[in-house]
Structures are given as structure tokens and as C-alpha cells.
Write a protein that binds this DNA or RNA. Structure first.
Length: 459
DNA sequence: TTTTGAGTTGTTCGA
DNA sequence: GTCGAACAACTCAAA
């Protein structure tokens, strides 16, 4: 029997549509030893929701790989070369990582491996089109979305990868498997008071299938903007951890006509665009992509920041979103924009503080999408238009949650109010009888304040 | 090189 | 209530 190739899984916890698996099988003559490394440097920054999601996704991946998945704890620069030596692998196969941390880590691991005569082989990425591959005709990256979208489509992507025939997985020993299962159980907070989706590639594919069967795609173009409806695919956490690949989804969209399928592909393209932006601008994860607002006056995070975090601002749609985040690890995209606008434009707090809170609590917390989504709202990112993006939290609530159902679902103190009055408790005599807090700021005033601060630095 | 049209997701005001 | 214009100026992409 020939020596196996190692398959190091990271943001790709699945077995289907995984090009690196095919590459590993080819290198190992069918024999593959799959590995995941729990890197303390990453885990410590993940927050308990994302750690638990990782644990459950890993437990599902263990099942996908028929129990043959190795899980090791430690610094990948040490663990991966040791693993390669242990199983006798001549090559380590991965999906190419494109985040700033991942790029640095892979370069370091690759170097150590090379010293031991082991090849480090990236195949594919977590994206339909790998970051850096879509460029203008002069080779420069795109900085606005619409032209990127056109070029991204034109570039195209391969069909889903087919699992290689005759695959022979090299799994852990019984002792190692026991240690693995116990490490995963430790990471999985059973008493987590947050309702997470079912983890794993099977659950992801099932959700995708059932959502489409229920007409989700047909209604997507309009319903995706409605937090009061089950209008989104809820696949973001799966895409983040790689229990499903966007290429799989795009292939299924091929047979679908209509605005829903079109809009869904565009949303996937946004994910790819922001990954591309981060690839070209690694520092934009936590600092302004554009220097236009350098010198902008921000307020320190104090009681108002805490009120925002806890969902006690007195603006119903803002509070509903922030409480949905704490309760489920997820927030509807429309509401993410509203609460982000509120933090940056009404409370005048610097966007990275909000982005960090999101990363601490979102199960789908994706560095590229999160940071650039925040920057888009703050006016420092792509398509910077700070003057045009001061959301009115009441108008937005009335428009996208017209019957107040979303607000009542997440804010119990407003459940006694009918219809849209839940968005304006100050307009009804019994609005505050159940303990709902009064507005911590006056939106009209803070809007003027925000525009004034912007004007002061954009001259 | 210069020019031109466009740029996810808004809000407010006044007719 | 509905509609269109104004908002402030800039950067980007492509011809």
C-alpha cells in the first residue's frame, strides 16, 4: 500500500465538492488522511457561538468521513508537519486560504513542510472564483461591485468536484479517536443558550433543498429584504465553515430562471467581492479601506454602546436585531445594515467596535463580509457614500417589517402593541407600559450631527 | 490621456 | 399618499 496524502481541512468541512480531496487522492494513489487542526490562536478569538458551531460542524465532518477525520490541537506549524510525518504523507493538500491570517499561517506551515521534504499543495478556495483572479483588463482589482459582478460572471467557475473513485481514508487509532471526540465535546457548549442551525454538509444540503422546495428561491428577490419572513436561505454559517461550497449552489441555480435565482447569485457574488477586496487589502479588516474619513470625530464606547449591544436603544427595529443576534447568533441582513447605521451615525461610534461585536456573536461571522459590510455603512469602504447612508430606523422598520411582526418576535416589551405601532411606541398611550426603554438619542438630531462631522472631514 | 457615465440596499422636502 | 428632485462631491471603469 502506498503512502497516503494528507488533507488538511480548514474552512471546508465537507466531503462533497472538495477539489483538494481529489488532489490528495491523486497524490496518495487513493489513500488520504484527513486532518483538522484546532489552533488556539484562532479559537480564542472566535467567541462561544462560533466555537460551538465549529465543534458541531466538526462532529458532522467526522461522520462524513466515516470516522476517519483526525483532529489535533496546537500550532499548525508544529502539528501539520508532525502529522505528515506520522502518517508518512509526502504532500499536504488544502483549499487555498485567502484571509490575512490564513495567508501568513499557510506560508509559515508550507515553509516548515518544505524543510522536511513535504509538499504543500493548495487546490481551490472557499469561493467559486478565487480571490485575486477577477481583475480589470489592466490587471488591477475592482473597487466597485457592479463591474466586478460582470467580470466575475464572465470569468466563470468549474462544475462541482466529483469525489474520486476508490478513496481509502486513513483514520485515527481508537485512542486518537477517543481523544478527538472528547476534545470536540469540550468545545461544544451543550448548554449554549443560543439556537444554532443543524451543522454539517448533510444538514446544509437538506436546508438548501427544502428551502427551494418551499419556494424560497422564487420569492427570494423580494422576501430576502424582509426580516419578518423566512425569506433568506440561512446558509451563511454553512458557507462560512465550508459545509457547503458556493459552487454547489451556483450549479443548482443554473437550472433556475427568474429574479430569485438571479438575486441569489448576486448575493453570493457579494461574498466573493468582499473576499477579493480583503485579499488585495489585508488591513481593511480592521481599518478604513479609504482614507477619506481619517480625522473623523468618534465618540467613545460607553453606556450607549452597551445599550446598543443589549438591544435597549429605544428604537424597536434596532433592538429587535440586536436581541436576535444574542439569541440566535444570526441577524437578518437588512437589520444588520440598520443597526450598523445606528451605531455609526446615531451614536457616532467607530465601525470596528460594532464589527468586533458582530464577530463575537455571529455564527456566520466572516471577516471579509463583516468588515466590508460595516465599512459600506460607515462610508469608509467600497462605494463610499456616507451622506446617503444615514438610515432612519423608524422608516426602515415600517418599510421592511410593515406589520411589526419581527419587532414583536424579539422584543417582548412591545408584544402588546398592534401592527406597525410596535415601531412607534411613543405614538400610542400604552407604548411603554411593559417596560420598553425610551429612545436613548433623537434620530433627527443625531443625523444632523453625523452629517456635520462628515462635512468637517470631507472638505 | 481624457472624457463620460455610473455607483446595492436612503432620506427629506416640496409639489 | 405619491412622486421626483436634491442631497455633495468623488472615485471608478471603460470607451
Amino acid at each position: 500500500m502506498s503512502a497516503p496524502a494528507a488533507l488538511w481541512l480548514r474552512r471546508d468541512l465537507r466531503r462533497s465538492d472538495l477539489p483538494a480531496l481529489g488532489a490528495a487522492a491523486a497524490a496518495g494513489d487513493g489513500s488520504v488522511a484527513p486532518l483538522f487542526v484546532m489552533d488556539p490562536a484562532l479559537l480564542s478569538g472566535a467567541g462561544r457561538v462560533r466555537r460551538t458551531w465549529l465543534a458541531r460542524s466538526l462532529e458532522a465532518a467526522v461522520r462524513s468521513y466515516d470516522g476517519a477525520l483526525h483532529v489535533r490541537v496546537g500550532d499548525p506549524r508544529v502539528v501539520v508537519p508532525a502529522f505528515a510525518q506520522e502518517v508518512g504523507a509526502g504532500s499536504v493538500h488544502v483549499s487555498r486560504e485567502t484571509t490575512p491570517f490564513g495567508v501568513r499561517r499557510d506560508a509559515a506551515v508550507s515553509e516548515v513542510l518544505a524543510g522536511g521534504g513535504v509538499r504543500f499543495v493548495p487546490t481551490g478556495t472557499p469561493y467559486a472564483v478565487g480571490p485575486g483572479l477577477v481583475t480589470k483588463s489592466d490587471g488591477e482589482p475592482y473597487k466597485v461591485f457592479t463591474p466586478f459582478l460582470r467580470a466575475w460572471r464572465e470569468h466563470g467557475w468549474p462544475a462541482p468536484a466529483v469525489e474520486p473513485d476508490g478513496l481509502s481514508l486513513v483514520g485515527p487509532t481508537k485512542t486518537q479517536a477517543r481523544e478527538r471526540d472528547s476534545a470536540l465535546a469540550d468545545l461544544d457548549e451543550q448548554d449554549l443558550d443560543v439556537d444554532l442551525p443543524d451543522a454539517g454538509e448533510e444538514a446544509a444540503l437538506r436546508r438548501w433543498r427544502e428551502w427551494r422546495a418551499a419556494g424560497g428561491l422564487t420569492a427570494y428577490a423580494t422576501d430576502r429584504d424582509r426580516p419578518d419572513r423566512d425569506g433568506t436561505s440561512m446558509l451563511s454559517a454553512h458557507l462560512k465553515i465550508g459545509s457547503i461550497h458556493p459552487r454547489t449552489l451556483l450549479a443548482d441555480l443554473d437550472g433556475e430562471a427568474g429574479p430569485g435565482a438571479e438575486t441569489f447569485a448576486v448575493e453570493l457574488a457579494w461574498r466573493e467581492f468582499y473576499a477579493d477586496v480583503l485579499w488585495h487589502n489585508p488591513t481593511s479588516a480592521w481599518t478604513d479601506l479609504r482614507p477619506t474619513l481619517i480625522g473623523m470625530a468618534y465618540d467613545d464606547a460607553g453606556d450607549q454602546f452597551e445599550a446598543w449591544q443589549q438591544g435597549c436603544t429605544g428604537y424597536p427595529i434596532v433592538d429587535a436585531g440586536m436581541r436576535q443576534l444574542l439569541a440566535t447568533g444570526w441577524m437578518h441582513n437588512r437589520v444588520r445594515m440598520i443597526v450598523a447605521s445606528f451605531l455609526t451615525k446615531d451614536l457616532h461610534i467607530w465601525w470596528p467596535l460594532g464589527a468586533q461585536h458582530f464577530m463575537d456573536h455571529l455564527v456566520d461571522g466572516d471577516l471579509a463580509s463583516n468588515s466590508h459590510g460595516w465599512q459600506w455603512v460607515a462610508g469608509t469602504g467600497t462605494d463610499a457614500s456616507p451622506y446617503f447612508r444615514v438610515f432612519n430606523p423608524v422608516t426602515q422598520g415600517l418599510k421592511f417589517d410593515p406589520d411589526g411582526d419581527y419587532v414583536r418576535r424579539w422584543v417582548p416589551e412591545l408584544r402588546h402593541l398592534d401592527g406597525k405601532s410596535a415601531h412607534e411606541p411613543w405614538r400610542v398611550p400604552n407604548g411603554y407600559t411593559q417596560g420598553y426603554p425610551e429612545c436613548i438619542v433623537d434620530h433627527a438630531e443625531e443625523r444632523q450631527e453625523a452629517l456635520g462631522r462628515l462635512a468637517a472631514v470631507t472638505k
